[in-house]
C-alpha cells in the first residue's frame, strides 16, 4: 500500500509575532514569537493514512494548513514531486492546490448555505476550468457517490440545511474528491459528529485509501479514532513532533513520556487495568519555551541533561522515532 514519500517536509516552521503588552515594552524588548510549528521534518508516504495527534495549541492544525498552503510557512520546505511547494508561482500553486485538498472540522460552517449540493461540489471544477457541462455533471455525481451520498441525483438539488451533519461532511469530502487529488488533509473531520455517524466517515476514508490509493493526513486530538484509522502516527507537542511510528507501536509501545501521558488521559470504558493517576493540564504557551526538551517541566523522567539540550527526533528502531533521551518501554535512544 505505501511506497516512497509523496511529500518531504523539511524543517517546517510557522512563527507568529507575539503581541507585547505595551508600547514602551515593545520598544525595549526584542520581538517575541509564538512558535506554532517549530521545525517539523517528516516524509509523508504515498497511499498512507498519517495521523497527527496532540493537544490544543500543539501546532497540528497549523501544520495541516501549511501542507495545503493555506498558511505560508515562515521557514522550511515542502517538497512535492521533486519541487519545493513554498517557492511555487501562482500558476504552479493552482495546480498544487488541485492535488491537495483539505476538509475542515465544522460541516455546518464550511459549506455555503445558499448553494445547492451540486453547485458546491461543481465549483472546484469551474475554478480549475475542468471539463464541459456534461463531464462536470458526471464528475459531480461520481464524487457524491464515492463520498457515500447515494443515489447522487437525490442530493444534487438539496441545500446543506436539508442534510444531517454526517451528510454535510460527506458533501465536503465529495467537494475534495471531485478534483481527484493525490492527497487529502482532514482536520478533525468527525469531532463534531455523533458516534453512529462518525464511524461511517472513518470507514469512508479507509475505502478511499484502498480504492484510490489516496494519501490522507488525519488530524485529531482523539487517539481513539487515530488508532482505528491510521497507518502511522505523529504525536506533536508545542510545535514539534515528539514521536513518530506505526500507529500500533506508538499506541501500544509508546516511547515518549508525553505520548504515554496523552494516552492515559483518554477516557476508556474498556480498559481492564487500573490506570495510574496522572496530572495533565494545559500545554504551556509556545512563546517562552523552556530550555532543552520542551516537555521537561511536565516530565516525570526529566534529568539535568534534558535541560541542557533538546533531544532530536531519532530512530529507536527501524520504524519508530522519538525525541527523548530516555525513551520508555525498554527502547534505546542512540547517543550522539
Amino acid at each position: 500500500m505505501s511506497s516512497g514519500p509523496l511529500l518531504e517536509i523539511r524543517d517546517l516552521k510557522k512563527w507568529y509575532p507575539a503581541r507585547t503588552t505595551g508600547f514602551v515594552e515593545g520598544l525595549f524588548h526584542e520581538q517575541k514569537y509564538l512558535r506554532a510549528v517549530d521545525g517539523v521534518s517528516i516524509d509523508i508516504r504515498e497511499g498512507e493514512i498519517l495521523g497527527l495527534a496532540g493537544q490544543s495549541g500543539c501546532g497540528k492544525s497549523t501544520f495541516g494548513e501549511m501542507l495545503a498552503m493555506l498558511t505560508k510557512p515562515t521557514e522550511g520546505d515542502i517538497v512535492y514531486d521533486g519541487q519545493d511547494v513554498t517557492t511555487f508561482s501562482k500558476e504552479e500553486m493552482k495546480q498544487y492546490k488541485r492535488k491537495c485538498q483539505i476538509i475542515f472540522q465544522d460541516p455546518y460552517e464550511s459549506l455555503n448555505p445558499r448553494f445547492s449540493v451540486g453547485r458546491i461540489v461543481r465549483e472546484p471544477l469551474v475554478i480549475h476550468g475542468i471539463g464541459d457541462k456534461e463531464e462536470r455533471d458526471e464528475r459531480v455525481e461520481k464524487a457524491l457517490s464515492d463520498a457515500g451520498l447515494k443515489p447522487p441525483e437525490s442530493f444534487v438539488h438539496q441545500l446543506p440545511s436539508e442534510l444531517s451533519g454526517g451528510q454535510r461532511q460527506r458533501v465536503s469530502i465529495a467537494r475534495a474528491l471531485v478534483l481527484e487529488p493525490d492527497f487529502l488533509i482532514a482536520d478533525e473531520p468527525v469531532s463534531m459528529l455523533d458516534v453512529s455517524i462518525s464511524t461511517g466517515i472513518l470507514n469512508l476514508f479507509r475505502t478511499l485509501q484502498e480504492e484510490r490509493n489516496l494519501t490522507i493526513v488525519y488530524i485529531s486530538h482523539d487517539l481513539g479514532t487515530i488508532d482505528y484509522l491510521t497507518d502511522r502516527t505523529a504525536i506533536m507537542y508545542l510545535g514539534n513532533i515528539v514521536e513518530l511510528g506505526p500507529t500500533s507501536k506508538v499506541v501500544d509501545e509508546s516511547a515518549h513520556p508525553y505520548t504515554d501521558l496523552l494516552l492515559s488521559a483518554m477516557p476508556n470504558p474498556y480498559l481492564t487495568v487500573e490506570r495510574e493517576d496522572v496530572a495533565m493540564g494545559d500545554v504551556p504557551d509556545a512563546i517562552d519555551l523552556p530550555s532543552g526538551c520542551r516537555f521537561r517541566p511536565d516530565c516525570a523522567y526529566a534529568t539535568e541533561k534534558c535541560s541542557r539540550s533538546e533531544p532530536p527526533l531519532r530512530n529507536i528502531d527501524a520504524e519508530q522515532l522519538t525525541a527523548c533521551f530516555y525513551p520508555i518501554n525498554g527502547k534505546d535512544y542512540p547517543e550522539e
Binding site: 454526517g166 458516534v195 453512529s196 464511524t199 461511517g200 472513518l202 470507514n203 481513539g224 482505528y228 500500533s248
Partner: peptide, 23 residues
C-alpha cells in the same frame, strides 16, 4: 449495542467499527 460497536477502542484497531444506518 450499535453505539458500543461504533466507538473506536484504543488498542483494538483491527476491529471494524459499525455504522448505524439512517438518522
Amino acid at each position: 449495542i450499535g453505539l458500543q460497536n461504533a466507538f473506536p477502542r484504543l488498542g483494538q484497531r483491527s476491529r471494524t467499527l459499525v455504522t448505524i444506518p439512517g438518522a
